[in-house]
Amino acid sequence: MIKLQVIGNLGKDCVTNTVNGKNVINFNVAHTEKFKDAQGNQKDKTIWVDCAYWTERTGIAPYLRKGTQVYVEGTPEVRTYPKNDGTTGASLTLRVLSVQLLGGRAEGGEGGGYNAGNSGYNSGGGYNAAPAQTASAPAAGGNESYDDLPF
């Protein structure tokens, strides 16, 4: 088995579909590496990974928003396709086995405002932690816990 691990940010909000009666969450992750070329100039190289997460547990989908940093693990596949200029292009896809939410962007509401570390969701278990709460006032009862998930 070949396993691929990716840490990066989501390029756009995920899309949840049903294919042949099974749920799939599609999203893409970008990882950017910084390096210096032979002349000493700072360069960036971004690799995009298209991800397909086949799962019955779609509760993570609202948290997979543009800009959110994730750790994704699964089995890779390279797909080729014909480009408009007649050449062949290739894309890296990942059949996701597990995904962990590492955080999100703090500015401008990108990433859904979610910014908790070590929160995750995987195909074998469930959530490892509750999402961060941003309430400015205590709940009406005062003693209610934020540990309960709505799904």
Rank of each mutant, 00 (worst) to 15 (best):
E56M: 09
K83V: 00
A132K: 11
S145K: 11
N122H: 13
P76W: 02
T93A: 05
S119H: 08
G124W: 10
E77P: 00
A139Y: 10
A137R: 12
K34C: 04
G21R: 09
Q39L: 12
G108M: 09
A116N: 11
N20I: 03
S136V: 14
I47E: 07
R105S: 07
E33F: 03
A135S: 14
G103T: 03
D13K: 03
T16A: 12
E77T: 11
V29N: 11
A130H: 09
F35E: 08
L101W: 01
A132V: 12
V70Y: 01
G117V: 00
E107A: 05
Q5P: 00
E144P: 00
E73L: 09
N128S: 15
Y127C: 02
V96K: 10
V6Y: 04
N17Q: 15
E33M: 01
A52L: 07
I2R: 13
N118S: 10
N84E: 15
P82L: 01
G86S: 07
G104A: 02
E77L: 09
T32I: 04
G108P: 00
K36N: 15
E33S: 13
Y121D: 10
V24W: 07
L64G: 08
I2S: 15
T58E: 11
A116E: 12
Y127H: 11
F27E: 09
Y63S: 02
G126V: 02
S119Y: 01
A30I: 02
A137N: 07
V19K: 09
L10I: 09
N115R: 03
A38Q: 14
G125D: 08
E144Q: 14
V49A: 05
T68W: 00
T88W: 12
T58P: 11
E110H: 13
P76G: 05
V96F: 10
G124L: 11
N118G: 05
F27K: 08
G21Q: 15
A137C: 01
F151L: 04
I60V: 11
T88R: 10
T18V: 15
P131W: 04
G89N: 01
D13P: 06
G126Y: 08
L92N: 08
G103D: 02
V6T: 10
V6C: 12
V24H: 12
D148P: 00
D37S: 12
K36W: 01
T93F: 09
G8S: 07
N143W: 10
R57F: 14
N41E: 14
C51L: 04
V72Y: 05
L101E: 04
L101T: 02
P62W: 05
L4Q: 10
S91L: 08
R57Q: 15
I2E: 13
A38E: 13
G11Q: 03
K22E: 15
P150C: 00
G120Y: 06
G142I: 09
I7R: 13
S123E: 11
Y53R: 07
R95G: 11
I7K: 06
Y127K: 02
K3S: 13
V24Y: 09
G120K: 06
V70N: 05
V24N: 06
K83A: 07
S123D: 14
D50F: 08
G124P: 00
A135M: 04
N143D: 15
E144Y: 07
A139G: 12
A52K: 06
W54E: 05
V19F: 06
G86Y: 07
R105L: 12
S119W: 12
A139Q: 15
T16N: 10
D44T: 05
K45T: 10
N143E: 13
N115T: 02
G124T: 13
R65A: 09
V24S: 05
T75A: 14
